[in-house]
Every structure is written in C-alpha cells, then in structure tokens.
Design a protein around this nucleic acid. Sequence first.
DNA 1: CTAGAATAGTTGCTATTGCAATTAATGGAT
DNA 2: ATCCATTAATTGCAATAGCAACTATTCTAG
Lengths: 157, 157
Amino acid sequence: MSAKSPRSSVLTLEQYLPYRLSILSNRVSRTIAQAYKDKFGLSITEWRIMAVLGEYAGASADEVSNKTQIEKSIISRAVQKLLSRHLIHREVDSTDRRRQNLVLTDIGEDVYRQIVPVSYDYEDALIDCLSSAEVEQLDSLIEKLYKHAGEIDPQDQ
Amino acid sequence: MSAKSPRSSVLTLEQYLPYRLSILSNRVSRTIAQAYKDKFGLSITEWRIMAVLGEYAGASADEVSNKTQIEKSIISRAVQKLLSRHLIHREVDSTDRRRQNLVLTDIGEDVYRQIVPVSYDYEDALIDCLSSAEVEQLDSLIEKLYKHAGEIDPQDQ
DNA sequence: CTAGAATAGTTGCTATTGCAATTAATGGAT
DNA sequence: ATCCATTAATTGCAATAGCAACTATTCTAG
C-alpha cells in the first residue's frame, strides 16, 4: 500500500523520492569523505574496507565487496593502496589458495581507532535534528525500502 | 535531540546511517539508471538535466547544477551530449551574455513525456512497501536531514 | 580421476568524476 | 570610466569507476 500526490505530466524533481534520496546521500557522503581525506588521507572506499576489517578481521576481498556493495575491481585496487600504506595485511588462506585473508595491521588498527569516533561524531551531529523516535522510524523505513528495492530490481542479486 | 545505541570502539557499517543511506540510494539509482539507459540511452545526469528543464524551461547550466547538486563540469559535459543528440537547445541570454538558456527541443519534450511516467512507475513500485503515513514520515525525515546536513557541512554553500 | 562449472582475485580498457585553472562577461565601488 | 571581485561556463588533467576478459584454484557430476 502506498500513496503520493496525484501524478502530473511534469516531474517535480524536488518531490521525487529517488532524487531526494540521492541528493541527501551525496551531501552526507561528501561531507564525510572530506573529513576522512583531510584527516587520514583515505577515500570513502578505503575507509569502508577498513571498517569491514575492523568488524570482520580476516575477511576476503570478495566478502568485503559483498558487505560494502562495492564492485570487486574497485575493492581490489583499493586493497592494493591500503597494502602499500601498510594499513592492512593479507595472506593466502591455508585451506583455499584462491582466497586471501585481509586484516588490519597495527598501524591500520591505530588509524581505525581514530576514525571510529570521528564517524560516530558525524552521525550524532547529523541525527541531532531528529528525536529518538524519528531515528527509529528512519532506520525502519530505510530497511524496508532497501529490501524492497532489491526485490524490484530485476538484476539485483 | 537524538538517540542511538551506545557507542562502541567498533563501527558496525550495517548500522551506520550515512552508510545505509548511501547503499539504499545507490541501489535505487542503479535500478533507475539501467531503465533510462536501456530505454532512452540517457544517463541519470542527462535525465536529471532534462527533468529540470521540463520544470524550468530556460534554466542555465548553473541553475541546473544548483537544483541537481551535480557539479558544474559534469553538467557542462552532459549538456554537450544532450545538444549533440538534439534533445535540448541553448541560446545566449539577451541581457547577460555569460548565461546560456537551456530548453528542451521538440524531440526532447517527446522523450521527456515518455520518461515521466516510467519514473513515476518506479517511484510507485518503490514506495509500494510503505503506508501513506510512512511515505509522509519519510519525506519529512529526508527534508530535515537534508537541511541539517547542509548546516553541518562546513563548506556546503 | 577428469572435464567443466563455479569462485576469488586481478587487470585492460574506456567512461566518468571532480578539482583547479581558464576564458569571458558583468557588477560595484570609487 | 577603471579596477577588482564575482559569476557563468568550459576545459585540462589525474583519479576513480565499472564492465568484461583473464588467470588460478576449487568444487562437482559422472
């Protein structure tokens, strides 16, 4: 079930949900990206890889790709950068030699520990305009939409 | 006012709002982009420019950039493509020769009229998982967040 | 055991981004 | 009028994205 204002032959971008989502997301991402870049020299992609490894040490590139929804080749190249900066380390899996397990190095752990609070600070600042009930609503709405968007998309998954 | 689960020294990407927003927005945009590309050979950027011109005939590239929050240079190049496909037309403003007014051509109008219902169909399909009350909530939450995100961002505007 | 499908990861190639510098025109202050 | 800041639009360039092809390894069916 759903409802929206009646259709017209003109599309009002400002009221079009996919567009509004995109604008909001871009604005938020841009702000964070800038902070990560300024303070730590990391792109969003690089940071996301580290975030996954902070949670799941030993994840493979493929797992990181699935978790972050970032394309394999992009992950592969970002991993190379992180390796060259000694922020992560990898080793071939002992039981499956196709697989390479990725972990944060000590330096990587250090950077990770510095970024986590910055990330939370930004999130806090962002949701500061919402009540706790609204934050819950938002989480639930995003969840519903995300699942449903996946079902709608013919080629998704 | 706000509230979230207590902080930890680990960042759970799946629960991090900026990340969730980004994933949702990307999934939605990807689906739509594919439809526009398959059916009309247009990128999202190109379509958004046309959407703005459908609403605001005679807008300048700069105005389009502000409305869509897409970077000037990207607009400039997309405009060139639309011009070469004769979907839009432009002419130097009579009172300010820096400015070029953009309008849809007849062909552009035609394509526009075909895309609008496709866009609405997708939006309808997407929000089909929400009640009308939830759609309103979502609109309001996005609006609040968008404004607030702009205030937070040091370099925004 | 073996052939072919499936999976992990990398790389080639092209298109897209986005910052910064450039060009051209306008507006404002004196 | 003149100089300087501002604005509109474009372009150069380096970084990034993303598809598709490729290598290497493992899995699976017979």
